[in-house]
Simulated scan of single mutants.
Amino acid sequence: MDIPITDQLDIQGAEILGQKVMEFCHLLRAKGLEVTASRIIDTFRALKAINVFKRDDFYTALEANLISRAADRELFYGLFQPFWSGLSEVMISASCLSGWESESRLPSHSLDTSRFQLEPDETETPQCVAMYSPAEVLSRKDFGKMSETELAQVQRLIASMARQMATALSRRKKAREKSYVIDQGRTMRRSLRYGGEVMELKRRGPKVGKTKMVLLCDISGSMDVYTKFLLQLLYGVQNGLRGVETLVFSTRLTRVTSLLRRRHINAALALISETVQDWSGGTKIGPCIREFNDIMAPHMVTSKTVVVMISDGWDTGDTSILDAEMARLRARSSRIVWLNPLLGNPDYQPLCKGMHTALPYIHDFMPVHNAESLRQFGKLVARVA
């Protein structure tokens, strides 16, 4: 059954969520779990009483209403994680995106359980809408060609991406009482309190990774067309993650971390425009990185730091300096990610001397010209955090 999506903000988000829950119920039934129509109705009733934006509450509501046997919990957990953490393949409009970020409860009228059917339509192509991954806003349009209104929509995507990077799960484990993985070591040690009898089960799960990042952004004249977007990107990442340092460069290097820490982006941009004096100038990437390596990197960069360079690679300085300083930076950091807005052009070749010199030291060379490329960058950072 194709669930219609209305133009109203709250209804639209609820319809997408309802469709996704129905798909998940079909998946559980296909795997042998006893998911009846009454349990699905109870699930939708539960969703009206919780904040669906809190993942733990959402998981608990689905598990409590769809699972009746303790033996099914492990299977349910194994199906829930990949299903609700997948990539979005459905374009979600900007109005819907702002609704997801409002952190408000869905209104009771938006979850009408009578509108959902239990049996899937065999002629319908299933759609995957991930509620906990970055949403696409204007997926293919180049940032340099966007209007002010469209760039404001992209700002919401950047905020959403930053939140996901800030809560990315690490491969390392820590004690988590709500996890379903038993920590055998801690369980046995705790049993010593009871004469060797296992009275308490201790559990562990993935810990939230702490992304340590340094952003170095080119603000020279060749990057002018992307300036508005890049400032939004810097602001969103700086205020969405902890432990981020932000610097801009053209012919000289300027630290803008403290300037970006403002409640409103317009206030931050006004401070930056007053402080940074070399907007739209020439580009001396090598000397700027050398200044960073000599003065700031010892305090900002460790073996766990991801360094993100945002530049088109056009350099008017000595490439031998750039070569030496990129080697120093790579040796000090965990990973170097270079975001080049020109890379989105299918005919682009990194032939300019600055880009050609830096390439051997880069771990990830990625475009950053539209929402899709921005989403790919967010996935990368969340994965390597």
Rank of each mutant, 00 (worst) to 15 (best):
R45D: 13
L9K: 09
G18E: 02
V198K: 03
D72S: 10
S179Y: 08
V256P: 01
D2S: 07
R45T: 03
E103V: 02
N370T: 13
R176F: 00
Q153H: 15
M131W: 11
K202Y: 12
Q12F: 06
D323H: 08
L87K: 12
D7W: 08
Y226F: 09
G281T: 07
L241T: 02
I11F: 05
G32E: 06
N370F: 01
A30I: 03
W279G: 09
S114C: 09
G209A: 15
Q81C: 04
L79G: 09
K210C: 04
S88L: 01
R190N: 15
F292D: 08
I285Q: 08
F76A: 00
V129C: 12
M213D: 00
N345W: 02
L17Q: 02
T36W: 05
H369N: 15
E372H: 12
S110V: 15
A130D: 08
Q155D: 14
R39Y: 02
C288D: 07
G378F: 01
Y132C: 06
M223C: 01
F143D: 13
S38E: 15
F249K: 03
L342Y: 00
Q277V: 05
S133Q: 15
L253Q: 03
S147T: 15
T254K: 06
L138H: 14
N345F: 03
L233Y: 02
Y132L: 14
K379T: 10
V154A: 09
M366S: 13
D57K: 09
N266E: 11
P350V: 01
T113K: 05
H356A: 15
L111N: 03
S258N: 11
R69H: 07
F80K: 08
T187L: 09
L231E: 04
S170T: 15
E122N: 07
Y180C: 14
I40H: 00
G205Y: 01
K20H: 02
E150F: 10
E74T: 13
V129G: 06
I310V: 15
P367H: 05
A324E: 11
A371G: 11
S102W: 00
L157K: 12
Q277M: 06
Y77Q: 14
G13C: 12
R204V: 00
M91N: 03
F116H: 07
S280C: 06
P134M: 07
H264Y: 13
M91E: 04
L234E: 05
R330K: 15
F83V: 04
Q376S: 03
K48T: 15
I295L: 09
V301F: 07
G209M: 04
R375E: 05
L33R: 04
R193L: 14
C217N: 07
P107R: 03
T251N: 04
S38N: 11
K48G: 13
F116V: 01
T319V: 11
L260N: 03
Y59A: 03
K174A: 08
A268D: 06
L151W: 13
L233F: 09
R242C: 00
T123F: 00
T36A: 02
V181N: 05
V35L: 01
E177Q: 08
N370M: 02
D278R: 05
L230S: 02
C96D: 02
Y180H: 14
D183I: 05
M22A: 11
G196Q: 10
E15W: 01
S98Y: 01
W84K: 03
R140E: 14
K145I: 07
